[in-house]
Design a protein around this nucleic acid. Structure first.
Lengths: 125, 125
DNA sequence: CCTGTAGTTCGTAACTTATGAACTATAGAA
DNA sequence: TTCTATAGTTCATAAGTTACGAACTACAGG
């Protein structure tokens, strides 16, 4: 089994970070990890009311890891994941925090909108 | 020819913004537009030392437009593009600015690294 | 060594993106 | 009005990426 890849901080790119966090599932995982550090992969088999298959989750963790957003370490049979936010914040000040904040704002807004028109989804096509 | 789509600001999503700006060509276009407002599509046929085909450019502009990042208006035979940064900044404070700043930091760093090892590209695979 | 749990890899189907060729839209000249 | 040039869009398709089930590896505890 190929060893885990963790890019060194100089190899972390903005494109990579943005791409990784542009997926709602990955953004949710990352947000959760930022709070409950050390969570394992299968803590996320259910996230934001959605079932995610194990293989898909594994790929998402790989994407986060190879973008340099998280660090994963094997502990016995499971994988402990932690964010690399301090390092990234050194290199790109405020980036992660601002993105997470924006995701929060959006989530809050969605809650409010959902209450008004449940199940709705408008488009100005 | 189908009319231009500009999502209303409430329909703009963080995922959409991140995805749009996670492409280096689109990030470069957006950065340029943020300075020289009103630029046209073909002002970017050459960007960051790369030739971009017209059809590809057109798609990139569409991506930026449909993510809500820019506004495009026909003026005679050409298209004038402007950023929607004020609107977005209202909704997601600091998001765009921080991302552009991070891109700048990275570009500056790349210049420095390029001087040291010209043509190089390392990986911690 | 057997079993269970945690996660990875592989193959493939579904989706996305890049691009050349052909098209539409507009301005200005003949 | 028609002709020509310029700016940009659309379409078809090839190339690349992503999702996910099935089969696998890795480790812990009987």
């Amino acid at each position: 089994m190929r060893p885990l890849v963790h890019p060194s901080i100089e190899d972390v790119t903005v494109e990579g970070i943005l791409h990784a966090l542009s997926d709602p599932v990955r953004a949710a995982i990352y947000a959760e990890l930022a709070i409950s550090s050390g969570a394992t992969c299968s803590n996320f088999l259910k996230i934001s009311d959605r079932e995610i298959p194990k293989s898909t989750l594994s790929q998402h963790f790989r994407a986060l890891r190879e973008a340099g957003l998280i660090r994963s370490e094997r502990h016995g049979v499971e994988m402990r994941n932690t964010t690399r936010c301090e390092e990234i914040n050194q290199r790109f000040p405020g980036l992660i925090m601002t993105i997470m904040k924006a995701h929060q704002i959006q989530a809050a807004e969605r809650l409010r909108t959902a209450k008004r028109k449940p199940g709705g989804k408008a488009r100005t096509a």
